[in-house]
């Protein structure tokens, strides 16, 4: 019987020895991306009796698309300012002192249930020692106007799923495409949301700074963003996925489509931007050939993502 016991013990030692760990898929998805859901305070600015609290995801403004929430509090009564006219203008100053802006919502919308003013900004570059971003926020209480001018810091967006691109279309207009969602895609069908904006070129010379006509942007209407996602890694041989859907505009003024990622890793979203008339403004069709060992050529218009 002792022999049998030995057998059993030896078998269990052998069995319980080393093994390869299973992948934790949820953790795998968040190694390259962090999903932020909470809006946190970026900065608070006081002007007279009012304090303006600017909130964004993770309390940080990043290059690319940022949804922003503004709450305005009367410091005397501690009551919030409701349903006022609030305007929002980001201004970029480059190393030579030239100013420009970026796609943004100028008139912020008041959300009564959440009691904040919401808008967005697509910051086109990061702040550093030579360039800076300033916010010009105006609002009116009764007859009193308040104007706030605050320098902010725009940080690098490390999540490539929120990348953006800016380009000049074949119609000589300046366009901006910024990814809005998903922040953390999966090996799945993902609803791909992007904002597509255009710089409204001024027809008149600049007036008093900040002259709004010089910094006007709008979401393009009824364009189509054709999508062809591919894996750029040479060994993946221009691998793509099925059942993707081109991005079209929905009621939220954002463009919605479907992208399927067949595995985690680097992907290139190859785009072709067409206007409402179906004319191509930017982007080229890419090869659909499977070319193991050779990296597929990208479209003229693309955004790289990684998850």
């Amino acid at each position: 019987m002792k022999r049998l016991h030995f057998f059993v013990i030896v078998i269990f030692v052998v069995v319980s020895s080393c093994t390869v760990e299973k992948t934790d898929y949820e953790a795998e998805l968040s190694t390259e991306t962090t999903e932020y859901i909470e809006y946190e305070n970026v900065t608070s600015i006081t002007s007279g009796d009012y304090t303006v609290n600017l909130e964004a995801l993770n309390g940080t403004l990043y290059k690319g698309y940022n949804e922003i929430h503004l709450s305005i509090i009367n410091t005397v009564t501690s009551e919030s300012l409701q349903d006022a006219e609030v305007t929002f203008l980001p201004i970029f100053t480059d190393a030579n002192g030239n100013t420009s802006s970026c796609p943004h919502a100028y008139n912020l919308e008041y959300d009564a249930t959440e009691d904040y003013y919401s808008g967005f900004a697509v910051f086109t570059s990061e702040s550093d020692t030579t360039v800076s971003w300033q916010l010009y926020i105006n609002f009116q209480v009764d007859t009193q106007s308040y104007a706030i001018n605050q320098t902010i810091t725009v940080e690098e967006q490390t999540n490539m799923n929120l990348n953006m691109t800016a380009f000049t279309g074949s119609d000589n207009e300046h366009y901006f495409i910024a990814l809005v969602s998903p922040q953390s895609p999966g090996v799945a069908e993902n609803n791909l949301v992007a904002g597509i904006y255009k710089y409204n070129q001024p027809t008149e010379a600049e007036g008093t700074f900040p002259d709004l006509s010089q910094y006007s942007y709008s979401a393009v209407q009824d364009y189509t963003l054709l999508l062809d996602p591919r894996m750029p890694e040479a060994s993946m041989g221009n691998h793509s996925s099925p059942n993707n859907e081109d991005l079209i505009m929905e009621s939220d003024s954002l463009y919605h489509g479907v992208v399927n990622y067949t595995m985690t890793g680097n992907w290139t979203l190859n785009f072709i931007l067409q206007n409402a008339e179906g004319e191509t403004l930017k982007g080229t069709e890419v090869s659909t050939e499977f070319t193991p060992g050779i990296e597929g050529a990208k479209s003229d218009l693309y955004i790289d993502i990684l998850f």
């Binding site: 992948t23 795998e28 190694t31 390259e32 090996v187 894996m231 890694e233 040479a234 060994s235 993946m236 595995m263 985690t264 890793g265 680097n266 990684l306």
Partner: peptide, 10 residues
């Protein structure tokens, strides 16, 4: 990936 410093694909 051939460049092992790049992210793996899963």
């Amino acid at each position: 990936p051939q460049d092992r410093s790049e992210t793996t694909m899963f």
